[in-house]
């Protein structure tokens, strides 16, 4: 049985797709059979971030409507054989997804994969609700900014009431906080909510902290999930996040301002020793 993880946020543009792509890739690189599904019907993006946009033939809606099989619609990632992508439709509207259809797809995938990552559309309407309904765990992507935090709290409300686990009175969805686009400089200046404040307000476990990073745009330009850029801060922060999702206890990085560059550190460190 696969573990189903939804990447969700309520607010748009906070980094769900970036995070879903990085997390799915990271899980696959760690040896897990992983599939990442784009639930953003009508506005697909995941294929671009994953760099497989030219290989899309069929999509999630085709599968649900019986126009293509799962095997035909899934795209194998060119860098990791453990990773598959199920794209969203670019043309249909959101109503093309049905609860029964989504359930069938997830059940079929469950038999073959270890992890199913669902990239949710923004909002709290039907599309977002479908993406989270069958989840076992949720990664709630939050930016250090009032509207994002408020929307994350709305999503937490949905996770605890409008999911299958909630409706069947099973163990609740495991909620993880993923803070992204964090800028320690602005936090220091007192102009950005700090990590502890966000954690205190939302009161769920932290799974990762992703700094605001130039590497993210570079990665999306190239269609290579940022986690492959293992020299970058964002790439490393996502790798840590994946470790924590897999149950490992790794220390938090990138919370404070990186004061000195490598050279300065070499000289400074040498002098003090």
């Amino acid at each position: 049985m696969a573990k189903i993880i939804v990447v969700t946020s309520g607010k748009g543009g906070v980094g769900k797709t970036t995070s879903a792509a990085a997390i799915a890739t990271g899980l696959a690189l760690r040896g897990n059979k992983t599939v990442v599904i784009d639930f953003d019907v009508g506005l697909r993006n995941l294929d671009l971030i994953m760099g497989c946009e030219r290989r899309v033939v069929y999509d999630l809606v085709n599968v649900i409507q019986g126009e293509a099989g799962l095997k035909q619609a899934m795209i194998r990632d060119k860098r990791s054989e453990n990773l598959h992508i199920l794209p969203a439709s670019q043309t249909r509207d959101k109503d093309a997804l049905t609860l029964e259809g989504v359930e069938k797809v997830l059940m079929d995938l469950s038999e073959e994969f270890d992890y199913i990552i669902c990239d949710s559309p923004a909002g709290i309407e039907r599309g977002a609700q479908l993406a989270l309904y069958f989840a076992d765990e949720a990664v709630v992507v939050t930016n250090p900014e009032v509207s994002s935090v408020r929307d994350s709290d709305r999503i937490l409300g949905l996770l605890s009431s409008k999911s299958r686990r909630a409706e069947q009175n099973r163990d609740p969805i495991k909620e993880h906080l993923l803070v992204t686009r964090y800028n320690p400089n602005r936090v220091n200046d007192g102009d950005m909510l700090n990590l502890d404040d966000i954690r205190e307000i939302l009161a769920i476990d932290l799974v990762g902290l992703i700094p605001e990073s130039e590497a993210v745009l570079r990665a999306s330009n190239q269609g290579v999930p940022v986690i492959h850029d293992d020299k970058s801060d964002a790439g490393q922060a996502y790798a840590d996040t994946v470790s924590r999702l897999m149950g490992e206890d790794v220390p938090l990085r990138f919370q404070s301002v990186q004061k000195r560059g490598l050279i300065a550190r070499m000289f400074g460190g040498g002098g003090r020793r």
């Binding site: 935090v149 408020r150 709290d153 200046d189 007192g190 909510l193 404040d197 307000i201």
Partner: peptide
């Protein structure tokens, strides 16, 4: 600091939503 204003506002909003 604007961040502490943000925090106070959020605490009220979230308590209300919950």
């Amino acid at each position: 600091k604007s961040a502490s204003v943000a925090k106070e506002r959020l605490q009220i909003i979230v308590a209300h939503q919950r």
